[in-house]
Amino acid sequence: MSAKEIKDDRQYTKDHEWAKRDGKEVLIGISAFAVDQLGDITMVSLDVQEGDEIQKGQAFGTIESVKTLSDLFAPLSGKVTRINPNLDDQPELVNADPWGQGWMLALEPSAFDAEQGDLLDAEQYGKHLEDSDH
């Protein structure tokens, strides 16, 4: 996994979450860059359950790494349809495969068309990473 890798099949927040449309659902996770910054991830704690409504920008959980704790923010509003059942026991999945098996939750967006304009596409996100690279 390269920290510079960006997938062009999804959209991003400036805080390094990704959102990937998959039929009626949107899957949410964090980017390889975010994972590289966090280092070894030891715990993913989601403060939401299936069925909860969450708002775009809402903190929906935290990621603990050996180094630090970070908040997770919802890239879109919607109803939580699934949460990744494997992260409780295997938080390291986020390190190993942030784009796939390390997904965190799925939601049914309630305002996708209105909100998606605020997200970055892969190219914009790549530029964002370059701009914030000191």
Binding site: K14, H16, L38, T68, S70, D71, L72
Partner: peptide, 8 residues
């Protein structure tokens, strides 16, 4: 994910 600023 909140960013930690590194520049100094």
């Amino acid at each position: 994910m909140a960013d930690e600023s590194v520049a100094a």
